[in-house]
Amino acid sequence: MDRLEASLPRVAARRAAAGSLLENRDALGWAMVAPALFLLGAFLAYPFLLGVWLSFTDSRIANPGRFVGLENFRYLVGDGVFRLAVLNTLLYAGVAVVLKFVLGFALALLVDREFRGKRFVRAAMLLPWIVPTSLSALVFYWIYDSQFSVLTWVLRAVGLVDRSVNYLGDPNLARASLIAANVWRGVPFFAIGLLAGLQTVPRELYEAAAMDGAGPWARFRWITWPLLVPVAVVVTVFSTIMTVGDFQLIWIVTKGGPANATHLFGTLAYQRAVQGGFLGEGAAVAVFVLPVLVACVALAYRALRRED
């Protein structure tokens, strides 16, 4: 009983302290964001910084290695396979993003009109984006099969080719095939993003322009496009980041072959760091992509600020 009485003031004091903490806006703010900060720090900042650190070491699997400065980067600059991977990545991302933008924009303009079954079409066009990448990659693996390709079968049926097409055996054809698969998967992202932008354009502007005698091209050039630019930039930047970092499609369909013709940063980094065991060098391959991604993020940030 005595002990209970003695503990009561302590409990009251603790409650008072907790109460004052809740009253303190700064402390409460930090307490509220702490879980998010912890998650970001543990699962984003730490792995990222560790990756950057590893790129400056000769670390191997099960061997922490030592600091080697820029040695990994020097090595990579002189490495033909890495240089090929850089070219592949630029080509892959450049061509795929442009095609995705053009096709996505066309699709967005199309489904922005009123027609029967509009909602169904809008939902259906998202399918390539919704399907797990690994699954769609497996489908393309079959579509591009050198002996059993359905695409070849169709081309043969219509008389366009008379023999099997070597989609993944020829370097340029393999690159083109993978770009086509990426475009198929990525067009809905552009279409939906740009469609959302198109929906925000006030209809009155079009009506006013029409009364002033503006034709479809003039309305697009002077109304739609200027108002859509911020959204288009953001969508393009996000898509570029995702395309540059692509891994699953390449790994499942070609594993970077034939003869490294389709290696991107991600697949080469994985091959060297995890399969080859050279963590430092693999990390350096991944870190090389940072300037590209940072430039993309800066662009997006600028576009978002302009939108504000």
């Binding site: 591009y144 050198s146 002996q147 023999r163 099997s164 070597n166 989609y167 993944l168 055996g169 020829d170 393999a174 070609t254 594993k255 072959g257 034939p258 003869a259």
Partner: peptide, 8 residues
């Protein structure tokens, strides 16, 4: 057969 260069 053609295509072996891309065979997995």
């Amino acid at each position: 057969i053609p295509g072996v260069a891309g065979w997995l």
